[in-house]
Amino acid sequence: MKVLHLISGGDTGGAKTHIINLCSKLKNLVALKIICFMYGQFYEEVKDAGIDIDVIQQSSRFDLSVVDKIAKIIENENYDIIHCHGARANFIGMFLKLKIKNKPFITTVHSDFDLDFQDSFYKRVVFSFLNKLALKRFDYFVSVGSALIDKIKGLGVSEDRIFLLYNGFDFSKEISYVHKDEFLSKFFDKRIYENKIVIGNLSRLYKVKGLDVFIKAANIIVKKYSNVLFLIGGSGPQRESLNLMISEYNLNDKVFLLGSIKNPYDFFNSIDINVISSYSETFPYSILEATALEKCCISSKVGSVPDLIDDGKNGFLFDAGDYRGLAQKIEILLQNENLIKEFGHLLSKKAKEKFSAENMARMQFEIYKSILSKK
Score class of each variant (00 low, 15 high):
L4I: 06
H5D: 03
I7R: 04
T12K: 15
G13Y: 02
H18N: 08
K25P: 09
I35C: 02
E45T: 13
D48C: 09
A49F: 11
D54T: 10
I56P: 01
S59Y: 14
R61F: 11
F62C: 06
L64V: 09
L64Y: 13
L64G: 05
S65L: 13
V66T: 07
K69V: 09
K72Y: 08
D80A: 13
F91L: 14
M94R: 15
F95L: 08
I100H: 05
I106M: 06
S111N: 15
K123Q: 08
K123V: 00
K123G: 06
V126I: 15
V142K: 01
I149Q: 10
V157L: 09
L164K: 12
L165N: 15
K180I: 11
D181L: 09
E182R: 14
L184A: 02
F188K: 10
I192K: 10
G200D: 00
V208I: 15
F214L: 08
V222E: 05
L231G: 03
G234H: 04
N243W: 07
M245Q: 07
Y249K: 08
N250A: 15
K254V: 03
L257P: 02
I261K: 01
F267Q: 04
I273C: 03
Y285Q: 02
I287F: 07
A290Q: 00
A290H: 04
L293S: 01
G303P: 07
G312P: 04
L317W: 03
G325K: 00
A327Q: 02
E337G: 01
K341Y: 08
G344N: 03
G344H: 02
H345I: 14
K350R: 14
A351C: 11
F355W: 12
R362K: 14
Y368C: 12
L372I: 11
